[in-house]
């Protein structure tokens, strides 16, 4: 079976050009209006970001937008839901989660990408299978651009990690933007001190 590997490697050795240098990592520091920039970026992605509120605001948001019969799963200290993730063995059990509340590690203002490593989401499927997503992000975790965030994180630290930058969306029918393709139908980020 490894003969294909050997054949491919041999063909590359034979056909590749002389070694060309790997450039340094570029740096384009960006630190202006981080909050405003994040808000405008996530808006373009189909989500929203609120600021100047505490965790109580998330609790209020939940009460106002989700009825008590809906499954609410919170992984954020101080926000209470009604679904206990500890008992979940199989991600299929998350099928009827209405809203998940997560805390992001880092947020990138140029594109509103929020880094969610595996240990912040309990199950890899959670940020996708939930009908709605709420993410708490500390303002001091905002970074200018993707170069900066990759200096902060080690992607191999967790078996899985994802940048989530908005709700699930598609434009596959005549380029009409539709929010809620397969995953969350909304995403609200609460930026907090």
């Amino acid at each position: 079976m490894n003969s294909s590997k050997e054949a491919i490697i041999a063909a590359i050795k034979k056909n590749k050009p002389d070694l060309l240098p790997l450039p340094e990592h570029p740096e384009y520091p960006y630190e202006d209006n981080l909050i405003e920039q994040f808000q405008s970026s996530i808006k373009l992605n189909g989500g929203t970001a609120r600021t100047g509120e505490g965790k109580a605001a998330i609790q209020t948001y939940l009460q106002e937008n989700f009825t008590a019969d809906k499954q609410v799963l919170s992984l954020v200290d101080g926000i209470t839901g009604n679904f206990d993730v500890k008992n979940v063995q199989d991600p299929h059990e998350l099928e009827h989660i209405e809203v998940a509340i997560l805390e992001g590690d880092w947020g990138v203002v140029e594109n509103a990408a929020i880094w969610l490593p595996e240990d912040k989401i309990a199950h890899r499927a959670l940020p996708f299978i939930a009908q709605h997503l709420i993410v708490l992000l500390k303002i001091d975790k905002l970074l200018g651009n993707m170069h900066e965030v990759y200096q902060k994180i080690n992607v191999a630290d967790s078996g899985y990690g994802v940048f989530v930058a908005g709700p699930s969306k598609t434009a596959d029918i005549e380029q009409s933007l539709i929010i809620g393709a397969h995953g969350p139908r909304s995403m609200v980020v609460f930026l907090m001190e």
């Binding site: 140029e110 594109n111 078996g159 899985y160 990690g161 989530v164 930058a165």
Partner: peptide
Amino acid sequence: QSITNYTSHFH
């Protein structure tokens, strides 16, 4: 778009 809404890193 500035980024796709999901950028998943599998290790």
